[in-house]
Simulated assay, not measured.
Amino acid sequence: MKKDVLVSVLGTQRNDVGETDTIHLVTEGRMFIKPNSYYIVYNESEISGMEGTTTALKVEANRVTLNRMGRSELKQTFEEGVLNESVYVTPYGSMHMGVLPSKVQVDLGDKGGSINLEYELQFDQRKLSDNSLLITVKEEHRFSELR
């Protein structure tokens, strides 16, 4: 089953000197409901700095896999306590990247919900920052459907 949804992504990045960067993106997307997982697909925008990139999230009970395709490419798995390394490909070059999640909390159902990720971000096997991602998914009700 497929549903139109509104996806809200709130990302926070805190470096080792305490500087914090926050980004908030709200966009339309699609949610695909499978027997043991959900897929959430949306297009990145200029706000995220990844215009021309599509993000797909495979959401399972204890694991979230992020797959970016297009101008930027990345496949990253978030599983509590498990270091996942990958190559992040951008128009400006490639980087070796890793995530070590301390929290992977999924509260998602057929009508939407949330995904809460907290993780250490690493570049070239060195800690870059502590990050959090709060992704909220809600069914989108179009005006024509309300009549």
Results as ranks from 00 to 15, higher is better:
M1G: 09
M1Y: 03
K2G: 09
S8G: 10
V9Q: 01
G11Q: 11
G11K: 10
T12R: 13
Q13D: 14
R14N: 14
R14H: 10
N15S: 04
V17F: 15
T20P: 10
D21N: 03
I23G: 07
H24W: 03
H24F: 06
T27Y: 07
E28D: 05
E28K: 02
G29P: 13
M31K: 05
F32E: 14
K34T: 14
K34D: 15
K34V: 11
P35D: 05
N36S: 12
S37G: 01
S37E: 02
Y38K: 03
Y38G: 06
Y39A: 05
Y39W: 09
I40F: 01
V41I: 15
N43R: 15
E44R: 01
E46A: 11
G49K: 04
M50W: 04
E51T: 13
G52S: 06
G52H: 12
T53W: 00
T53Q: 02
T53H: 00
T54I: 03
A56L: 11
A56M: 08
L57P: 13
L57N: 15
K58S: 14
K58F: 10
K58A: 10
A61T: 14
N62G: 07
N62F: 09
V64T: 05
V64S: 00
V64H: 00
T65C: 07
N67C: 12
N67E: 13
M69Q: 14
M69L: 06
G70C: 02
G70V: 02
R71P: 08
S72T: 13
S72K: 07
S72A: 04
S72P: 11
E73A: 04
L74M: 15
Q76L: 06
Q76D: 02
T77V: 02
E79N: 15
E80W: 02
G81W: 09
L83V: 01
V87Q: 04
Y88E: 07
T90N: 03
T90S: 09
P91K: 07
P91R: 09
S94C: 03
S94P: 00
S94T: 05
M97A: 06
G98V: 15
G98Q: 09
G98W: 03
L100Y: 11
S102L: 02
S102T: 12
K103G: 08
K103I: 13
V104A: 00
V104M: 05
Q105S: 12
V106S: 08
V106K: 01
V106H: 02
V106P: 09
V106F: 01
D107T: 14
D107R: 15
D107W: 13
D107E: 15
D110M: 00
K111Y: 13
K111F: 13
K111W: 11
G112D: 06
G113K: 00
S114W: 08
I115D: 14
E118Y: 05
E118S: 05
Y119G: 02
E120G: 08
Q122N: 12
Q122Y: 14
F123R: 14
D124S: 10
Q125P: 07
Q125H: 15
L128S: 12
S129I: 02
S129L: 03
D130W: 08
S132T: 08
L133Q: 00
L134Y: 01
V137L: 08
E140R: 12
E140F: 00
R142M: 13
E145D: 05
